[in-house]
Nucleic acid binder design. Structure first.
Lengths: 196, 196
DNA sequence: GTCTATACCACGATAGAC
DNA sequence: GTCTATCGTGGTATAGAC
């Protein structure tokens, strides 16, 4: 198992991103060194700078692509026009499912906000707000339809997202409950919480 | 404004803890250096080691004391035996209030879990579970009384705590809504979510 | 494209003077 | 109790050979 010289740009790039995401999630951005990442990838630290400008840009790119995948995925599963309560259920299922499948990216995108430079922070925040607005629109429609009863749609949107995202702190595939069952339980609480 | 030599053990200790908590919350444990903390306290880095064994113990002590204050404060506001729904409301108000008043400690105690050594991590986790169990007991009683209708009390406890703790990510004293108003809105959603 | 080697700096922690 | 000085380590990032 000697070292492997030569060109492998096509695989080193993705591997760098995967390793960085996993290590950042596990130990935190500030606690992970470029040398550690390089070791996981199987190259020397210096070689990483062929793929990134610096450590900060690496973090930002990981978070930005996560948020954009989230928005794209939600847009792709976009509900046909239908009752707000059905759209709410769709949103909740989508949220739990998408987030459960990317625990590392979710964790990093939430925990490392404070390690972003101001401009990068603003860019990520804008994407996060766009997602929040998607849920808020559903709640506002439900309110208008009369199918929901909410004291404050903005707070409700934040409260529900916090609740749904919380699943990630404890859910593990293969535990006491299947993901579908967890979804069912949360949807029951979500529907009740909005006064359905 | 020259430097101030001499003995000030009584104030340096608390100041160290305050500065560390604020800096850890703002930048993260791994990103904050002992020198930075010392600068805030107004002493040299070496002087800090009169008060702590090492950086890791400092983090652990901050988290441990936060969790114990949380449990003590809840025990002190312990409800007289009463209807589960009233106890739930009391818990929710207590939770929002206590957490809003200590945003830094809450943030650190949640975000820096991964930077604890295994034994320290286990100790903090045990305290966190004790708190969770307090809410779970209320929900179980509500279920038994018939005043609540929950598919899974354990999940419900985690979901509600995630929702309530989420207030901290956006709530700022002096914003659009007073803390009391926020409490009212959340309690409305909490009561509905448990099927009251 | 990746390597080795290294510049340069900051880290946590300690020793010993005051 | 705090200071200055320092040890040993490891950080990010770059230079230049292959």
């Amino acid at each position: 198992m000697a070292r492997k010289p030569g060109s492998r740009a096509d695989i080193t790039g993705p591997r760098l991103r995967e390793a960085a995401l996993r290590l950042f999630a596990r130990h935190g951005y500030a606690a992970v060194s470029m040398r550690q990442i390089a070791r996981e990838v199987g190259v020397q630290a210096g070689a990483l700078y062929q793929y990134i400008d610096d450590k900060q840009s690496l973090l930002f790119e990981l978070m930005r692509s996560h948020m954009e995948e989230l928005l794209d995925a939600w847009a792709a599963s976009a509900p046909a026009p239908q009752a707000a309560l059905d759209r709410l259920e769709q949103f909740a299922r989508f949220h739990i499912r998408f987030h459960a499948a990317r625990a590392d990216a979710v964790f990093v995108s939430y925990m490392e906000l404070r390690n972003l430079e101001p401009m990068h922070f603003e860019a990520i925040e804008a994407l996060r707000r766009r997602y929040e607005t998607e849920l808020e629109a559903i709640l506002r429609d439900g309110q208008a339809e009369g199918s929901m009863s909410l004291p404050d749609t903005k707070l409700a949107a934040m409260a529900l997202i916090a609740m749904l995202t919380g699943v990630n702190t404890w859910f593990r595939e293969g535990g006491r409950l299947s993901r579908e069952k967890v979804e069912d339980i949360y949807i029951d609480m979500v529907r009740k919480a909005v006064g359905a």
